[in-house]
Computed example of a mutant assay.
Amino acid sequence: MAGTDDGQSADAHSASVQDYVKVIYGLTEWRCAPVTPVRIAKRLSVANSSVTGMLTKLVRLGLVDYVAYKPVLLTPEGRTLALTMVRRHRLLETFLVQDLGYTWDEVHAEAEMLEHTVSDRFIEELDKRLHRPRRDPHGDPIPSHDGTIVLPQAHPLSELDDGHPGHLVRVSDENPALLRFLTTEGVSLDTPVKVLERNQFGGSMRVGFGESPNVTVLNAGDEMADALWIHSTDTHIGCNLV
């Protein structure tokens, strides 16, 4: 997966183009919700007018299908470019944690900068050095060289019923403060999780992390409950919007 289907390297595109296709992909990776210019603007912290202009450019480049008032969709070429950038980002995050001693709340911004400067060869060598990891420090799957990506069977904690057991397979990296909090509480990937009690009228839920007798009980508010993804044997609810 060195570049798009027509042979172009990812580096043939500007950093802003790379960022946009990666964000469009990311908005549908775990949740099936239509991608709109407003959602893109919120994720990138830019004005809606800036997104409209960039979408026009992405359509011209053959990376996106978009007409006004309809969802934004990646073309096959756009998806290939997006997965190339996702692969770079997640391998860099893994390297920063495993080899350089970064913590999982520190790596996102660093990888955002580095992913635009490294070469395809560097990424392939890095993948080999890391023994071809399947997930990054937050549990997000790392695409293979050919663009294959496999999401674990998982649901957000907020969707689980009382008494539902499982283990933590992914934590959203959107809020570094949440990642730091989980670290202080001894919660990490693969930690056993069990919903102990759900508030009847919404709000926080009591959740046990760890195995008896060393169970840490936390009150998980809406943000935490949506950010933590728990392994489930149910059929995966992956998205087919892109």
Rank of each mutant, 00 (worst) to 15 (best):
L58F: 01
V118W: 05
H131Y: 13
P133R: 15
L44K: 07
G101Q: 08
L74H: 05
S144R: 11
R60K: 11
V38E: 15
M85L: 13
E106W: 08
R132D: 07
L73R: 15
G147W: 01
H145P: 00
L55D: 08
D136G: 08
F95H: 13
E112G: 01
E110P: 01
G147P: 00
T52N: 14
R79C: 05
G78C: 04
V46T: 13
Y102H: 11
V51K: 09
E110G: 04
T56N: 09
L58G: 05
H89W: 02
L114H: 13
G62E: 07
H89T: 11
E125M: 09
T56H: 06
L92C: 05
D127W: 14
R60I: 00
K128P: 00
E125N: 12
T52S: 13
A33R: 11
R60E: 15
R88E: 03
R135Q: 11
P37C: 05
R79Q: 14
T84E: 11
L130M: 12
R43I: 01
R87T: 12
T52Q: 11
T52C: 04
V46M: 14
E77C: 05
R88Q: 03
H145Q: 13
D146F: 02
K42A: 09
N48F: 03
R87P: 01
A111S: 08
I149A: 04
I123F: 04
F122H: 14
Y69F: 11
A111K: 10
L126T: 03
V107R: 11
R43Q: 12
L96R: 14
T80H: 13
A33V: 06
A109T: 10
T80Y: 08
R134I: 06
R132P: 01
S119H: 06
V72N: 08
H108I: 06
R87D: 04
P71Q: 13
S49H: 03
A33W: 01
P76V: 01
R39G: 14
E125T: 02
E110K: 15
P76M: 14
L58H: 05
L61Y: 02
V59G: 07
V64W: 03
D120M: 12
G139R: 09
D120K: 12
T75F: 06
T36H: 14
P141E: 12
R31T: 14
K42E: 12
K57A: 04
D105P: 01
D105H: 10
A47W: 01
A41H: 06
D99Q: 14
E77T: 00
L74Y: 04
V35K: 10
S45M: 09
E115N: 04
P71H: 10
T56L: 04
D146W: 03
V67D: 06
P141Q: 10
R87Y: 02
R60F: 02
Y66R: 07
T103W: 05
V67C: 02
F122Y: 14
T103A: 10
V107E: 07
L81P: 01
R39Y: 07
W104G: 06
S144Y: 04
R135G: 04
E115M: 06
Y66D: 05
K128C: 00
L74N: 06
L83A: 13
L63G: 05
G101V: 09
E110H: 10
L91C: 01
E106R: 14
P141A: 10
T103C: 07
V97H: 07
R90D: 08
T56D: 12
L81W: 02
P143A: 09
E115A: 05
G139W: 08
E115D: 02
D140P: 00
D136S: 12
G147A: 03
V35H: 08
L91T: 02
L151W: 08
